[in-house]
């Protein structure tokens, strides 16, 4: 009873989230003191069932927090590819950027989440966008020594320029 709707969402407790929303439907998109919605908390913690439930109830996947954090960037940072897919299916901005110029693909690279990187590439993520410190996804992969991800990125670029 002491947990907020945000914390309940992060715990993955669909039933408790539903109980709270039934009592107060304004909680669906309620932003906490940093602007995070329950959907963002669930996305950050990889709680797919809660994410699906909140989206089905009409939670806004495009809301950004005060420093422009989004559910997509949080899911990408955590490597939660199923959640990334669900959010992209709803038309969220795949190139959304936050307080340090971080985009979903930059976070997926930083977290070394190869499936997420691949999914974002397949859905058209912009590889030219750099962080505020000037790192593109490829440069970041190289700097962090994430060789498999570097290979995926390079192969993607080669495909883009393939005559086929």
């Amino acid at each position: 009873d002491c947990l907020s709707i945000h914390q309940l969402a992060a715990q993955g407790d669909v039933c408790q989230v539903a109980v709270h929303l039934n009592k107060d439907c304004s909680l669906l998109n309620k932003q906490d003191d940093r602007g995070f919605t329950p959907l963002m908390w669930a996305a950050a913690f990889g709680e797919k069932a809660v994410v699906d439930y909140l989206l089905a109830e009409g939670a806004d996947p495009k809301t950004v927090a005060w420093e422009r954090e989004s559910a997509l960037t949080l899911a990408s940072m955590g490597g939660f590819v199923d959640i990334v897919k669900s959010l992209l299916a709803l038309g969220v901005d795949i190139n959304t950027y936050d307080w340090n110029g971080g985009t979903p693909i930059l976070y997926a690279v930083r977290g070394n989440h190869i499936q997420c990187v691949q999914e974002l590439l397949d859905r058209g993520a912009d590889l030219t966008i750099e962080s505020d410190s000037g790192y593109s996804p490829t440069a970041l992969a190289v700097a962090l020594g994430h060789k498999k991800i570097q290979k995926v990125l390079e192969e993607h670029v080669l495909q883009l320029y393939s005559p086929d």
Binding site: H6, A10, R34, A44, G101, G102, R110, E130, Y135
Partner: peptide
């Protein structure tokens, strides 16, 4: 980043520790 139920999730500095380009 360490996730905790007691504070909002946060996104880390993308290039913390890396030299500026």
């Amino acid at each position: 980043s360490q996730l905790s139920l007691y504070c909002s999730p946060s996104l880390p500095n993308i290039t913390l520790g890396l030299p500026a380009t």
